[in-house]
Computed example of a mutant assay.
Amino acid sequence: MMQGEKEFAYTRADFDRVRKLLYQLTRIHLADSKDSMVYSRLVRRLRALKLSGFSQYLQYVQEHEDEVQCFINSLTTNLTSFFREPHHFDILADYLREHKVQRIWCAASSTGEEPYSIAITVAETLGSFKNGIEIIASDIDSGALQTAQNGIYDEERIKSFSADRRKNFFLRGKGAQAGRVKVVAELSRMVSFRKINLTDRHWGIEGPLDIIFCRNVMIYFNKETQLEILEKMVGLLKPQGLYIAGHSENFSHATHLVRHLGRTTYHPALVQPA
């Protein structure tokens, strides 16, 4: 790893220590290619804390519990958008028409665009904000969850929406908030946010669930951890429940847990008679 013109000395050993600590805390595995990302994300914390280098920062994390969450928040990726992978929301709408749905869990909600997209789909499909469906949204990143709960976004984020969708679900900011939008209160009330680390033993979520969205998060875990999480999630689903994965995720190694329906959607695997 080349130090180049970097503000702080940064070696391969520093990177390895960072990803070892992140794995211990979250079981997220950072690939070798993430070394530059780690530097750019953590250097902000070094500056904010007026520390001299990465070794000092890692020591600080281990000695200050309140910095642990900042460390995790800095290194977890929050790439998201409204109606990302739009076919999943078509599948959700079809499922809502065909089944009596009561509970949906969005298990990697990031800054909120995904759970609000779920809520919009529910409200549009069923024709009401008051539809009796509980939407739980969780993430490991406390900063992202705060953004999600605030429900305020740059107006650019919804530019592709129809005029009706913008009118029904968002308020346009004025004055100092010009160029921003806020989700309407009725939509916000459809979603409850909570902080959950998927590698924790207890999630505080009980079944049965009708649908789980867990998209583009399993790729950060090794196969063993993926199977542990998937098994727990499938155990919360109804027999005909729906598990929706991300476009880069594949569970061909988990046919004992899930049955592939196509387009990265799954049912729990049917238990075979003895």
Rank of each mutant, 00 (worst) to 15 (best):
A119P: 03
R166Q: 13
G112E: 06
W105D: 13
A123V: 03
Q149D: 12
I133A: 04
S160T: 15
A123G: 00
I118M: 03
A108M: 05
A119K: 02
S142Y: 07
R103V: 13
G143T: 11
A137Y: 00
A148Q: 06
R165L: 13
R103E: 12
D141Q: 06
T121V: 03
D154H: 11
L126K: 02
I158H: 04
I118P: 09
E155R: 13
I152M: 11
W105E: 12
R166Y: 04
S142Q: 09
R157S: 15
V122G: 06
I135K: 01
I136Y: 00
I136E: 02
S138C: 02
G151M: 07
I152P: 03
R103N: 10
D141H: 02
A108P: 06
C106V: 14
F161Y: 08
G132Y: 02
K159V: 15
Q149H: 10
C106M: 11
Q149L: 10
A163Y: 02
A123H: 05
A123F: 07
S142T: 14
A119T: 02
E114W: 00
S117E: 06
R103K: 13
I120M: 11
D139H: 00
F129K: 00
E114T: 10
L145P: 01
I118V: 11
N150M: 11
A137V: 11
S162I: 04
R165W: 04
Y153V: 08
G151V: 05
G151T: 05
N131C: 13
V122Y: 02
L126P: 03
T121Y: 01
E155H: 10
N150D: 13
E156G: 09
S138K: 01
I133G: 07
W105Q: 09
C106T: 04
I104A: 08
E156H: 15
F129C: 06
D141E: 01
S109H: 05
I152H: 07
G143K: 04
I135N: 00
Q146F: 03
E124P: 07
R157K: 14
T147C: 10
W105V: 14
S160A: 15
F129A: 09
G127N: 08
G127T: 03
K130W: 14
I120N: 00
I152L: 08
D154G: 15
D164H: 03
I136G: 08
G112Q: 08
N131I: 11
D141A: 05
I158P: 00
R166E: 12
V122T: 05
E134N: 01
N131V: 10
S142L: 05
I158D: 01
A163D: 15
S142H: 10
S162K: 07
C106F: 12
D141P: 06
F129M: 02
E156P: 04
L126C: 06
D154V: 14
A108K: 04
F129S: 12
T121C: 07
P115A: 07
V122M: 01
D154R: 15
Y153W: 00
E134F: 08
W105G: 13
I120P: 00
T125A: 07
S138A: 08
C106E: 12
A108S: 14
I120R: 02
S162E: 02
F129H: 05
A163F: 00
G151Y: 09
L145S: 00
L145M: 03
A163K: 15
R157L: 11
A163T: 15
Q149M: 14
E114M: 06
A148G: 04
S110F: 01
I118D: 09
Y116G: 07
Y116K: 01
K159T: 14
K159Y: 15
A163C: 12
